[in-house]
């Protein structure tokens, strides 16, 4: 089975472990294995924007250099923050000679204990941004092909309408990320459609959910999440699909606060795209970590036309 280097990042190892698990299950169902890096650190979550902060590029660059040194050319990640940070660090290293030299000077100066992937006599080779950073969705679109997904599905997601929510850092800034059109993205729409679900487009699909403001200004995040969820509802969505752990957390766990502030609000289940894929590939709901959700997803699962239901119907 094909193995692809995989960087889970810290959220997927703990607080968003259901994203990690469903992704691994789904990958196996599609014939490849997410091969977690032997050793990795936090990527830093937010890339440095200002030019003096080269230090914040060291962690993501070291992760990418280790992938390169292990002889691999591609790295899959799922968390939108990790994706953004790794991809932008790579972009800076590729396109800015001053940054490239400074980052490599720091990397070369690392504790010898850290050069675990090199033999002692291996000469130093600068990391020049050779590794290709791929979002799992990008891998599914460009390598597996969304058009090839339907043939392998045991439980196509018939009968539910899902609103893809893109958020911010998966798409922006477009110059460096280049995953999709930042104003009119289609990648999660096409993915969801390939799984057999109805796709609902809504105006707030690329509008920020508040990101880390849920820590420092939770009320602001509550207002943003209300706008997003009620807009999806008004356009006919039964549920929202996301890929980012922080989007998931804000949109799922804030719903209690939203219901207090806005009496007209009705709860809306949130799914990771990997959970939908894993379900459609035939893995049961018990494997998706739905107990980690604040909003009950069972109304959606009941609406799905499962093979069992179809058999009963026949």
């Amino acid at each position: 089975m094909a193995k692809v280097a995989y960087y889970p990042g810290c959220a997927l190892k703990e607080r968003s472990s259901h994203l990690d698990r469903s992704a691994r299950d789904a990958a196996l169902g599609l014939g490849f294995e997410l091969d977690e890096l032997e050793t990795w650190t936090c990527c830093g979550a937010v890339p440095p924007v200002s030019s003096e902060r080269v230090m914040n590029l060291i962690a993501p660059s070291r992760i990418l250099k280790d992938v390169r040194d292990s002889g691999r050319k591609e790295l899959i990640t799922i968390c939108d923050f990790c994706y953004n940070t790794l991809k932008r660090a790579n972009y800076s290293i590729r396109n800015d000679e001053v940054i490239r030299k400074r980052v490599n000077a720091f990397l070369a100066d690392d504790d010898p204990e850290r050069t675990y992937l090199e033999s002692d006599d291996a000469p130093w080779v600068d990391y020049d941004g050779e590794v290709k950073v791929l979002h799992l969705l990008e891998y599914l679109r460009d390598i597996i092909g969304f058009e090839n997904l339907p043939a392998g599905l045991k439980n196509p997601l018939k009968g539910i309408n899902i609103a893809p929510y893109y958020g911010c850092v998966m798409l922006r800034p477009e110059k460096e990320i280049k995953l999709d059109n930042p104003e009119n993205p289609t990648i999660i729409d096409e993915f969801t459609r390939a799984l057999g679900a109805g796709v609902v487009s809504f105006p707030y699909r690329t509008e920020c959910c508040g990101s880390y403001l849920s820590v420092s200004s939770p009320d602001a995040s509550t207002r943003l999440c209300y706008r997003i969820l009620s807009s999806a509802r008004a356009n006919g969505a039964d549920a929202l699909v996301v890929s980012c752990p922080l989007c998931f957390y804000n949109l799922d766990s804030r719903q209690e606060a939203i219901a207090e502030a806005y009496p007209d609000f009705k709860p809306m289940p949130i799914f990771y795209f990997t959970q939908l894929l894993s379900l459609a590939l035939g893995n049961g709901p018990e494997k998706q970590g739905f107990d980690m959700h604040c909003v009950d997803v069972s109304p959606i699962l009941e609406k799905l036309d499962t093979p069992e239901a179809a058999e009963v119907g026949e």
Partner: peptide, 21 residues
């Protein structure tokens, strides 16, 4: 300034992000 409840449940990108920014 963060409540213990929030610190225990916010996914790490939120915590790292807010303190970095």
């Amino acid at each position: 300034e963060i409540s213990p409840e929030l610190a225990a449940e916010v996914p790490q990108p939120g915590l790292v992000g807010v303190y970095r920014k």
